[in-house]
Structure formats: C-alpha cells, structure tokens
C-alpha cells in the first residue's frame, strides 16, 4: 500500500519554508509528516498531507515546482527496537532506502514512519510477507 508524498523544490532562503507551509495551511491542507533535505543553495521539502490532490493543485497554481512521489508509511511499534526490527527486514532483503522520516502523529499505539524505497512495489510486498503493516492514504486522512 503506497502513500503519495509531495516533494517541493525550495531555494535555500529565509522565510521560504514558512511561505509554502502558510500557503498549504490557508488552503486547509494539513501536513501529517514532513522532512527537509537541504544543500547550500536549495532544498527539497517532502510532505505527506491529508489531501495530496488539492495540495498538488495549490502548489501548481502558485508556480511552485513539486512532484508526487510514492512512499510507504509503515506502523512501527512504539517500543525499544521497534524501528530496528523493520530495518532488519529491509536490510536482509536488499531493499534500498533513499530516505526516511517520522510522522507527527501516532496511529493507535504505533508510531508511523515514511520510507522512500528505490522500488516501492517490491518493498511493500516484502514488508507484507513479514507481517509489517503499511498504512494507506485513507488511514492518514483519518488520523
């Protein structure tokens, strides 16, 4: 089960992240998970939101460069070694992780982690075989 992430190109300048977040907020879009990767001159904002279609349109209307990327949101037991257990499955099966980050909220007693796998289809299949649950967009919208 895959989740759509919005990846946004941002120049590395003061106030820019605030502007983009405000734009989404003003349009009633709620950010569920977020991370920023940056270089000296530019950065990439990656967000999972409650309404990806609306968010994509809003960004487009405002001439902000953004792409939709398929990521996998996985429930992680909120206890010591929870994340390690998942990463072991990932490593043992030679699945490449491009990057990963955590959710702002928890679903039930579990934490949520977002994984950007090189090959999301295969990753989801292997995670399922190992009884690791990936959540869907519906779940996220309902958080």
């Amino acid at each position: 089960m895959k989740v759509r992430q919005l990846s946004v190109f941002l120049e590395n300048r003061k106030g820019r992240l605030c502007e983009v977040c405000s734009l989404l907020g003003d349009n009633g879009i709620n950010i569920r998970a977020l991370t920023v990767a940056e270089t000296e001159t530019f950065g990439v904002l990656r967000i999972v939101v409650d309404n990806p279609d609306k968010a994509a349109q809003t960004l487009k209307d405002n001439k902000i460069t953004a792409n939709i990327t398929n990521v996998v949101a996985v429930e992680v037991k909120d206890q010591p070694g929870g994340l390690a257990g998942i990463l072991k499955v990932v490593a043992d099966n030679d699945i490449n992780v491009e990057y990963m980050y955590g959710f702002v909220e928890k679903s039930s007693d579990n934490a949520l982690m977002v994984f950007r796998f090189e090959d999301p289809e295969r990753a989801v299949q292997i995670l399922a075989e190992n009884r690791i649950r990936a959540v869907g967009e519906q779940d996220i919208a309902g958080l």
Binding site: T39, T65, N67, R116
Partner: peptide, 15 residues
C-alpha cells in the same frame, strides 16, 4: 529554473 520535468525528490539526483 527548476520545473517539474527536471525536478527530483532525491537530493542526490538534483546534485
């Protein structure tokens, strides 16, 4: 200028 056609979510690819 970076538009959708040349943009990637991966910093590595942008570099």
């Amino acid at each position: 200028e970076v538009d959708e056609r040349i943009f990637s979510d991966e910093i590595k690819k942008m570099r």
